[in-house]
Write a protein that binds this DNA or RNA. Structure first.
Lengths: 170, 170
DNA sequence: GAGTGACATGTAAGAATTTACATGTCAAAA
DNA sequence: TTTTGACATGTAAATTCTTACATGTCACTC
């Protein structure tokens, strides 16, 4: 369901798009909260067309197919947003790694956390640069970007404090 | 891989456990960052035993089987923690919902965000209660719990600010 | 004119995940 | 004593997700 919703959302925000466009959009905007590659997107668009949620243009240059959301698709997206009670859980490999850190001795844990922290700092810088770029303040990007930045910042702070705590113990 | 690592982590932290125990542990401790039901855990334990990462006791009362991590399992866990560079991406249905919110008109978006916020507040209270409980300060629970609390708190703050912004616009 | 790289779409196989089905034990309360 | 609920383990089917394979176009550069 989530993939479908994500695609309907992207089609609403960005207007008619090809599967290729949508895969790109996924990478650049939705990537922080959901992921999907083209091999998942293309077949899903076909199913969505069969279900009347989108319509496909005839092929354009280089076999390009442009999909447009239908009123039915828009309605389904709206219904999901208004009525669904999505799970509050999260799936995060790096959070899993962070969780298991105390199983290492403190020095090793610090080493691992340091590396993880470094990567989050990079990510934070990247997101903040995006935020400063005025052109990025479009569509649903604003709140989402803010959400992402806050979360990554929180993670870095947590890493700082946890490293300090581990150092104090080790 | 993540499921395997999570199970090895739980077995290390909690000592020898049954699949049932592990499923419970998953729900109560790892749940915020990874999820797995018993129907995924039981077969995985069998495979892990075949791979020499755990050993299974003979059956106890009510068909209970107790699994113990082997040195090889411990080594694999350690190697993953020290050497892997896990993805920084996250999969979160509620974050997806939050992202798509601006596609609704502001009043509707506020209504949805309000509901979402309410649920996060509940979750925050739950986690803070857990934190206050001294007995919860065991094993790898401390840092993980702190991590979870900070993230949920950040989400609530984001929701507050986003609701205010939406109200100002709507 | 050949090569490179972004554009563009697909399929197939396998792994991971979810949901539902299916079974049986033991202890305690009603 | 029956019934309820936690304990305990599994399998099957369906869906979702990842990784790899496979193909072809178009614009630009060397």
């Amino acid at each position: 369901m989530s993939l479908r919703i994500a695609l309907l959302g992207l089609l609403t925000a960005a207007g008619p798009s090809s599967g290729y466009d949508l895969a790109k959009s996924f990478e650049s905007s939705l990537n922080y909260v959901w992921q999907a590659g083209h091999s998942q997107i293309y077949p899903e668009l076909v199913k969505m067309a069969a279900d009347g949620l989108v319509t496909a243009d005839a092929e354009g240059a280089r076999g390009r197919k442009t999909y447009t959301i239908t009123p039915e698709g828009a309605e389904q997206l709206r219904a999901w947003l208004m009525e669904q009670t999505p799970s509050l859980t999260v799936r995060s490999e790096s959070a899993l790694q962070a969780f298991l850190l105390p199983l290492l001795d403190p020095q090793d844990a610090v080493a691992v956390l340091d590396r993880l922290r470094e990567r989050y700092v990079k990510k934070l810088e990247m997101l903040e640069a995006l935020c400063a770029d005025t052109s990025a303040g479009e569509k649903f990007g604003r709140y989402a970007l803010d959400h992402g930045i806050r979360h990554v910042r929180t993670t870095v702070e947590w890493a700082d404090d946890t490293i300090a705590d581990l150092r104090a113990r080790g």
